[in-house]
Every structure is written in structure tokens, then in C-alpha cells.
Write a protein that binds this DNA or RNA. Sequence first.
DNA 1: CTCTCGACTGGACAAGTTGCTCAACGTGTC
DNA 2: GACACGTTGAGCAACTTGTCCAGTCGAGAG
Lengths: 152, 152
Amino acid sequence: MDDLDRTLISLYAAEPRVGVLEASRRLGVARGTVQARLDRLVSSGVVTGWGPDLSPEALGFPVTAFLTLEISQSAGHVAVADHLATIPEVLEAYTITGAGDLWCRVVSRSNADLQRVIDQVVSVDGVQRASTVMALATQVPYRVLPLLEATD
Amino acid sequence: MDDLDRTLISLYAAEPRVGVLEASRRLGVARGTVQARLDRLVSSGVVTGWGPDLSPEALGFPVTAFLTLEISQSAGHVAVADHLATIPEVLEAYTITGAGDLWCRVVSRSNADLQRVIDQVVSVDGVQRASTVMALATQVPYRVLPLLEATD
DNA sequence: CTCTCGACTGGACAAGTTGCTCAACGTGTC
DNA sequence: GACACGTTGAGCAACTTGTCCAGTCGAGAG
């Protein structure tokens, strides 16, 4: 990761659909260099994809909630997570330290619909209890770019 | 959102760098149709961007933690969030219901480095207390695609 | 029933871009 | 000095993009 890599990523973050040739013009380097850097960023795992970013809100799921689950000792975390993965409204899940055992982000169509989603999560084998916290407003939307500046 | 939109998004999610012409061939529709659908998906807000997805891990920030903050009544949530936004390691933040007032996701270079990040967060004016939960392992990586199937 | 509208098709065109290859040039390492 | 490595700038055929247009089709309005 040098300055060129950082500038390149920033450029693509700002204008994702620029081509390699256009990027090389903007950065003042040869086209082959941009191509090589891009390839390297992808194969080194820094850039994991170029997929379209979807808005759950625009898809009709405006409610976000965070669930902290307690898992019964007999059930494996992985087995529970595999079941959670089959629920579309579960957007991500992590095992965690502290009071709970598993943390997950869910979305729903409405406050009322959230009940249905929570019921689905709680009905997963091994889930003993769920404590729910609702997200009210987004203060800092998900971002990674500032980390670039902190990279050396 | 009809079947064509869903298929189109799935295609781009699977192979983000396919061109419009190639996409139209795969879906068996005219090029103009793909172009029009894509434009509509973007302007309707379903697709919010095409940016490169960066891995905090690969950038040197392998540790993820979730902080629940209590904010003093005199401080506005928004003012606190504005300060949080200046800390690169704060990847997202929401106001929430329940015991805490603000929830945020942070990353750090190591367990030891997490202390530095937490100190930075707690030193923000108005933050009274932070309770920290560390993410141990990713069970379900962030995803939105399954929601597509649940869309009608 | 007929008209109109919007969405889709398939074709065309010039201009631009991609993937690929090549020889040549610095720079830092052994 | 010799070597590897990343970079440069150039060239080429094949392909894609943006932008037109005329024609088709189905749904809803009158």
C-alpha cells in the first residue's frame, strides 16, 4: 500500500465506473501500472469485490435491529449460525465476548414485521434468548475509506 | 423490482465487471433494456454504488469491536456522532433504543491497539461510558442479496 | 373497440476502451 | 556489474459504449 494504491482506491470509491485508461490519465501513470496495481489489490485481498451496493431500505426493509443471542451450551455456535444464514433478514452475525454469545444485525419491513423476524431467529435450534436493540437513526453510515489514510 | 431486476442484480453481484452488452446477452434481452433497468435501479436508490469493497482486515485492522456508548444529556447525539466520524477506526454508528444511546462498530490493529481506539472514542465530548464487546469470529458475513428473494 | 403511452427490440454508427504484447528504462539488492 | 522488478509508452485487433432510430407489443383510458 503506497500513495498510488491509496489514490487509486479513492478514485474508484468516488467514481466507480471509470475505466482503467481514464484512471491512468487521472493519476498520471501508465495504463499498465493501473492494471497491475488493481490486480494486486484484488489478489492481496484489500479489494474484495466490486459488487453493487444494495440499500435494504430501498428494497423495502427500513427497520434495522441488533440482536444479542444466548446459545444453549449443547448447541454449537456454528450450527446456529448456519441456520441463521438461511434467514434472509439476518444480514450479518458474529460470535462475541461478554454477556451474549452471538450478535446479529437484522432488518424488517416494519416494526410489526420485526416481531416475525425475531420469532424466526429465536425458533432456531439452540437459541435460548434474544435481546433486541433497535437502530433509530444512522449517525455514521458504514465506511472504510478513512482507514486508508491511517494505513502506512 | 421484477424478475429481470433481480436477475440483473444477481448477475452483477456474481460478476461485477461484466459490461452492459455482456449482461444483455446473458439475460437474453436487448442492450437498451439493461441500460434502462440499471439506470432505474440506481436512481430509485436500490443500488447505491459500485465502489470497491475494502477489507479492514487486509488493511491491517483485524480486530472488530462493538461499542455501546452512554451520552450525557447535555450533549447532542448528533454532535457526538460528528466527532466520532472524525475517528477513522469508527466504521459506523447508530442511535439506538435501550440501555445505551449510541452504538458503533470500531476496528483496530490489535487487541492492544483497541485500547487506543476506545480511549479516543471515550474522550469525545459527551461520551460518559462505553461498554465494549469484541467480535470473535464472523459467522455470517455482511450480505444483502438474500433480501432480493424476499422482495416481491 | 381503438388510441395512446411506456417499455422493449434490434439495428446502425463513430469514438473510445480493453487485453495483450513488446522493447526500453530506473532503482535497489546481492 | 548483473539481476529482478516495477514502470513506461507504444502498437494492434477485437470489442464495448453512448447515442440514435423505427418498429413491435401489451395495458389502460376514452
